[in-house]
Design a protein around this nucleic acid. Structure first.
Lengths: 200, 200
DNA sequence: CTCCAATGTGACTACCCAGTCATTTTTACA
DNA sequence: TGTAAAAATGACTGGGTAGTCACATTGGAG
């Protein structure tokens, strides 16, 4: 959490600090990112940064939080709508793409977060992964009960496949990957997961 | 490529250098790995390392090469055997697991290679990814022609799904993931990809 | 034994980084 | 206007890095 001093700042200056930090953390993972470059970019003294944040980690987590707050404002509507698990997931990824298109830097910040190797980020990463796994497991078991997903499949394996594909769908997002491609990928998964009469 | 001096070295000493480098590059990606720690670990002078290798990158690529050479000696037999695409892939991952079990450090070196963010590694990474994509695309189009894979699916999407899952299968390899789990994951993919009569 | 090329060496350079702190500047209020 | 608290500052510390180079050691040929 930033210190009070940061929130007392003139909004223009505060935004300049945020912008510079977002730019740096979009380009480099936590370890490679340079606080020195950030302060140079936004034109404040090194020491000033330490009036606003306790350390590099504090600033980083604040920026990652901003990115995910914004992302949540996009993807949350996917879960609000009705429909089977496949429709919800398609909407989720479409909204993720929209977020990435509108806020490319925040998108990169959010993505790079999961690549962080720094020891200090271990707790946050672990907690994040766990909470995602919990949410998806719940979502999946609901879908299995409602009969959308083949109940004979190992839920752990289903989760594993979805997680791997989902991560890459968002990771490898770029202008070339359109919603048509997304549909095709989700189709492969749908065919693999849907309950069916014919056994192959 | 190492310099001739490296190959003139006493085999014991040469192996000590390799072991120390493998240990470091198994634990840290290229950028985070420290040449200083490597020379300390194997007990040679910093300058000596530069008698053997032109720079850190030279040493790194040599070690990555060793890792992949060893790995190839495991997985190559998967492609030698007969059987449909699903059988070949199961064998491929089983052999990858065997490699990881027998050579955990080399496994980590090979895996970490793809995480590298360093600009100097860009060409190698790009070439590596391209050549893998080419191989798998060929493999896939053969399977589609032979009728194992649903021909109505977009080959790019199929490749994308397989690549994502395959990467994570190897990435997340650890003692808990046994061949039973692997079968379940490949089952999800098989169901998603196999040509079928019933439309869902 | 001598000599010279090949090899080994580690202090050193030049560069990066996060974080500190004594000092100065700004601000707010009496 | 005077003063005290808040905020801003940037030189500095201590630590890390890859790579260099003048010098020391080794080993084999003559």
């Amino acid at each position: 959490m930033p210190k009070q001093t940061f929130f007392n700042l003139d909004p223009t200056k505060r935004q300049a600090v945020i912008d510079a930090a977002v730019e740096e953390f979009a380009q480099f993972a936590y370890e490679q990112a340079s606080l020195t470059k950030i302060v140079e970019q936004c034109g404040i003294a090194k020491g000033s940064m330490y009036q606003y944040f306790t350390d590099k980690l504090d600033l980083y987590l604040y920026v990652v939080d901003l990115a995910y707050e914004k992302k949540r404002s996009y993807v949350s509507q996917a879960f609000a709508q009705e429909g089977d698990i496949f429709a919800v997931l398609e909407e989720y990824y479409l909204q993720s793409y929209e977020f990435a298109r509108k806020h490319p830097l925040l998108h990169q910040v959010a993505n790079k977060f999961w690549d962080s190797k720094a020891e200090v980020l271990r707790p946050q990463l672990e907690e994040g992964r766990l909470s995602r796994a919990r949410d998806f497991a719940q979502f999946l078991s609901d879908a299995m009960e409602r009969g959308n997903v083949n109940p004979s499949l190992d839920p752990e394996a289903v989760f594993f496949v979805y997680h791997a594909v989902g991560k890459d769908l968002i990771d490898c997002f770029d202008q070339r990957r359109n919603s048509q491609f997304l549909k095709q990928v989700l189709d492969v998964l749908r065919l693999g997961l849907t309950a069916r009469k014919e056994e192959v």
